[in-house]
Write a protein that binds this DNA or RNA. Structure first.
Lengths: 244, 244
DNA sequence: AAATTAATGTGTTAAAAAGACACCAAAAAA
DNA sequence: TTTTTTGGTGTCTTTTTAACACATTAATTT
């Protein structure tokens, strides 16, 4: 045993009394896809510090609010959506990451259908969709967060059918392929891609066709939601390992 | 724009003043491997609350200490090691997860060579190695943390050469195979496993043999450290997808 | 000393998956 | 009607995986 006072150890508050209370924030990396480019929902700050500069959407965790609840609240404030797909990315806790006050930030990684959210909610937060490849410098360590989120998106989407979260309810295989090409920034073979996607048996042919097309109209598919959620953690090699 | 007072928004402290300060803890899921079984380093609490019950090793993040530094400090207190392999698992923040006071906990996932750590340090923390398949009930949400950590270990080890962190510097391929069989709780084909491992070119033949063996002595390999770190994030399908 | 036993190391073959590529169909524009 | 663009499906080759058999080493038993 160590030499510390056993009374201190066994006193109910001992371990808690010494802990420092810190601000706990959530920052959201929100991805979207407009049909051609991978996009990021960024906030132009109209408050200090760093007013006028770009940042991620964030907020503090409140005392009587769980982490999940806080995430849903902040994503709702930003998008007007109640059921945004998100996962934890990583928690950032460098001492000086926020110059105003020591803040621990839990970074979230969210995927939304860019056409389905509430544009007014985003505008109220001063948020705009920015192409991933033209994103500006971000405040604090937000740039690092975005890089990690892109890594995670690429990592997960290569093996799990996560990409569907970025598409509308009904979509075509060429649209899905364009999404994957945007995520990995590389062309994919149309025929092999189609075969791979269909072999997952996750898509249901709606019988409809994409009337917007000016040439041959592609078949519109929808997700087999039940199967999708059941198999969510199983593997599919959408993108070959060496390239992810 | 929303209707809130622009002065409040642009006041430097506005957003921070409302944030609640919370305790931020780290909890460590520490895995080891004794040659036969996957093990967990657990603490028998000698302090309240839940004195006498089992928990993960944890501690609070201090005011002038980054998250990484806190992790290294706590892992050092537990193992006496300075360079423990760890990753963030997930951050837990349910309101009532700790009955004493609202606490956000960053759960860490650590892998150590069970024979290389400081046994006295562990004893000072009242920590013991427990077989994964005989682990007791844990306090708070620590049981959930361990389940998630096992999922993550299985997930990562199936594709990345992370398992080496649990082995001594020199090891044989049969030892590595036993580790994988313990992680996935399933037998693997000796010949296919060996071929797969050697095809990564990550192992260097030391020329030595495992003299402890009572039958045919297996070749001792060591990691090609440089290559290991360089290729750390690349994929190797050690375990076939359907089984991980 | 020979035979037995338990564990290690390597090779072979068939099946499955991935990758490269060619052709046909639909719809609008020239 | 021809051309252009995009979408859908098929085939062949190469690579990878999975299943399996046999030979080797070293200690123990007979």
């Amino acid at each position: 045993m160590q030499s510390s006072d056993p009374l201190t150890l066994s006193s109910p508050m001992s371990r808690y009394a010494h802990g420092e209370r810190l601000l706990v924030a959530l920052d959201c990396i929100v991805f979207g896809f407009d049909g051609d480019f991978l996009k990021l929902l960024l906030v132009k700050r109209n408050f200090e510090p760093e007013k006028g500069n770009w940042s991620l959407m964030g907020g503090f965790v409140e005392r009587n609010e769980g982490l999940e609840a806080a995430a849903n609240r902040i994503l709702f404030e930003l998008t007007g959506l109640k059921d945004v797909y998100f996962e934890q990315l990583q928690t950032f806790g460098d001492v000086d990451r926020d110059p105003v006050e020591r803040t621990i930030s839990v970074a979230l990684f969210a995927l939304i259908n860019i056409h389905a959210h509430d544009q007014d909610a985003a505008r109220a937060q001063n948020a705009y969709w920015i192409n991933m490849d033209r994103r500006p410098e971000l405040i604090f360590d937000h740039g690092r967060m975005v890089e990690l989120a892109l890594d995670k998106l690429r990592y997960k989407a290569a093996m799990h059918p996560i990409g569907f979260e970025l598409l509308p309810e009904k979509f075509t295989i060429p649209q899905l392929q364009k999404l994957y090409e945007a995520i990995y920034n590389q062309p994919l073979d149309r025929r092999n891609f189609s075969r791979k996607i269909l072999s997952t048996r996750l898509l249901i042919d709606t019988g409809e066709k994409n009337e917007k097309s000016t040439t041959k109209k592609a078949v519109l598919y929808k997700l087999d939601q039940e199967k999708y959620h059941r198999q969510f953690n199983s593997f599919h090699y959408f993108i070959s390992p060496g390239k992810g």
